[in-house]
Nucleic acid binder design. Sequence first.
DNA 1: GTATGTGAAACCGTTCACAGCA
DNA 2: TGCTGTGAACGGTTTCACATAC
Lengths: 216, 216
Amino acid sequence: MKAVKIPEATITRLSMYSRLLEWLDRRGVITVSSSDIAEGVGVSPAQVRKDLAYFGEFGTRGVGYNVKDLLHYTMKILGLTHPWPMALAGAGNLGTALCTHHGFRDRGFSIVGVFDNDLTKIGKRIGDIMVHPLEDMPEAIHSLGIKIGIIAVPPRGAQEVADIMLKNNIAAILNFAPIALNIPDNVLVRNVDLSVKLEVLTFNLKYRGSVAGEPD
Amino acid sequence: MKAVKIPEATITRLSMYSRLLEWLDRRGVITVSSSDIAEGVGVSPAQVRKDLAYFGEFGTRGVGYNVKDLLHYTMKILGLTHPWPMALAGAGNLGTALCTHHGFRDRGFSIVGVFDNDLTKIGKRIGDIMVHPLEDMPEAIHSLGIKIGIIAVPPRGAQEVADIMLKNNIAAILNFAPIALNIPDNVLVRNVDLSVKLEVLTFNLKYRGSVAGEPD
DNA sequence: GTATGTGAAACCGTTCACAGCA
DNA sequence: TGCTGTGAACGGTTTCACATAC
């Protein structure tokens, strides 16, 4: 935690390193080198070392990194030492998929409230939680200490949902609606836009013939 | 189409401009300025102009851009003048969500084959298409001229699915499995990793207090 | 010998500021 | 006058290469 600006890309990669380390740890691997990690997530070894160097010195020269230790550090850096309850707006197919998404629970994220204003969905059960009307979201946010909201409603309703979240002091939003939300600067937003991802592919298919590389 | 390298971020934004233009066009808007576009997608006007400049001169000085024309150009640049049939592997919740995802069809993408090797899913109907066994995928890829594959299976099965796609000359893969796929350089891959997105949020919540900005 | 940690260099993308044109 | 198009400046990220430490 220096007074240095840390590139977002570094955080993204750190998250990937962390998951790889979890995998290695489960397999009983004790030590990894920066090249091992690099190969595992598809970046350069120098990049791995630079990324880690933002946060401290975790390795041993001539040896590498202790898997368990580095895993622990990455989790701590990413703020994953405690669970993050989340509120989900939208109980459609996407919402259902997110609710049951294994990858979330594996990393300490859990959707503790699902909200929708479609009467045919309210009362339904997704996994082990029930869909509640949107108007119940504020109370849930406060009583369950929810800091992160997920928007998985159609574009039309997205800003409305965002506004409700904002009014109730949500700190961060993961938005799946393909529109630019109007969000104040003190609230974090990240968008997941599936069509954009596909269009990057079609562009490349069309103009570059075929070149690989994964910047994102 | 110059001999200039075009930043991936430019393509990402182009895709967003394109969708905004569609929206404006449907509303009967005739002309937009770079500032209008910039505001609509949350970037700077200079950025919009730079991005467009990679591909030509589409505007009129002192006036702006013709919405219909620019929409047409962006679609063409992105390779969206013809439909892109896609094969989906994985008929779980995520697969189902992707199948019924409106945003795809709106932009010319359509999933024309869904494959899974879970016997309880094969034969099921998602929307208007049926889930087929994974072994039927090769034939579908060839007979339907599929160039893009989507992987929405659990991490364990992802590489296997990828290998099948590769063996059948898929040109691009959109991967939702949170692992680094082993893919040759001549095949395009983009990963959608939901946990990573969330961990970027938790990192920022923890260390930056609250700062906005959407780099991705 | 081997692999980390790190300044310096190279590279890339964004912003600036203004020339060019309707 | 107003807004586009663009070379140049800027800032930030990645790569390089080597000193450092085990």
